[in-house]
Amino acid sequence: MTDMLMAERSAFETLFPNKPFRITHNLENDPRLTLDAILELVRALPGDHIEYNSGQANVSQDPDATPLVDLPPEEIVKRVETAGAWMVLKKIEAHPAYKQLLEDALLSVAHAQGHATLKEAGFSNVEGFLFVSSPHSTTPFHIDSEDNFFVQIHGDKLFSIFDNKDRSLANEDQIEHCITKHRNVAFKDGFDDRAMHNDLKPGEGVFVPYLWPHYVKTKDSYSISVAITWKTQATKRRNQLYIANAMLRDRGFPQAAPGVHPAWDAAKMAFVATASAVASPLRKSEELRKLFRKIALGKNANYYYRGQKGEEGVAN
């Protein structure tokens, strides 16, 4: 297989998967990542796999005050140069062609590291997030719940990454909130001095480790980017503990951070596993997915519907 995601061998040997580093890729001319193909993908995805708003957000954006854009998703793609919008298509692996793209990209990394399969390399729960942004759009400072090879397809971006061990950037309570409620984190004066700033052009990208805060800005042209993500067993476990803690906290039971009380963590993990097994067959329904998010994470858990025509104006 031709290498699709590439970096210096020393980066994989000394930095991966705990530190960010720059990568290159050969996906910029992939026909699945053109505006015409993305338009067809928008039409194929369920509503809760599409999130969008105005691109005129702040790096430190209050989620409750995120500016919206009065366009349906298809029009954002068609008019991306002038729409003033930011949009992400989530879990694109639901479409077979994009599932193949994501798995092929990660398999090229696995092979380069001497592994025969994605499972052997530790790449599980492979998901893809496709971003379409108008010029001069901002993705606010936030934290994601997975490891990520971020690749730039069209246009130029500034991608700024911050050390997740620096708890003055985001403490444990803020991290839990990002994983379970809304991903944005408040950004303060002076943070930028601590960033790894990356100017990305088509054919370039960056590895973003689990829970490393970052923000992104497009430049003078519209942007197409893809986040190729996965979860290890350790990250899945930590995410599940954040979810259990958030559910208990919302019901009046304060919780310590994951790892502080291992025995209690194990009991919470057993509960989450049981609840997930019961809910899993029902998640094929978009309406039931919305209901489960609301029950587990609160009334604002479906915040990303607020930009969509005909949906309730909820925000988080």
Rank of each mutant, 00 (worst) to 15 (best):
M1Q: 01
M4Y: 00
M4K: 02
E8K: 05
F12D: 00
T14V: 04
K19G: 04
K19F: 01
P20L: 03
D30L: 00
R32M: 01
I38D: 07
L41E: 12
R43I: 03
E51H: 02
Y52W: 10
S54V: 05
S54K: 04
S54M: 02
A57S: 13
A57R: 15
Q61N: 04
D64Y: 14
D70H: 12
L71A: 11
P72G: 03
P72Q: 08
E74V: 11
E75R: 15
V77L: 11
A83S: 13
G84N: 06
L89V: 12
K91H: 15
P96Q: 04
S108I: 00
V109A: 02
A110S: 11
N125L: 15
E127D: 12
F131L: 13
P135Y: 15
P135D: 11
H142M: 13
F150E: 04
Q152D: 05
G155K: 09
L158M: 11
S160N: 09
K165A: 15
S168Q: 14
E172S: 10
Q174D: 13
Q174A: 14
K181A: 07
R183Y: 05
R183C: 06
V185G: 05
V185T: 04
A186L: 06
H197C: 06
N198F: 02
N198I: 05
L200H: 01
K201E: 05
G203I: 00
G203M: 00
G205M: 00
V208D: 11
P209L: 02
P209A: 03
L211R: 08
D220K: 09
D220G: 04
S223F: 13
I228F: 02
W230F: 10
K231I: 08
I243F: 06
A244C: 02
L248V: 08
A257L: 07
V260F: 08
L282C: 13
L282P: 05
K284Q: 11
L288W: 09
R289N: 12
A301N: 08
E311Q: 11
E311R: 06
G313C: 06
V314R: 11
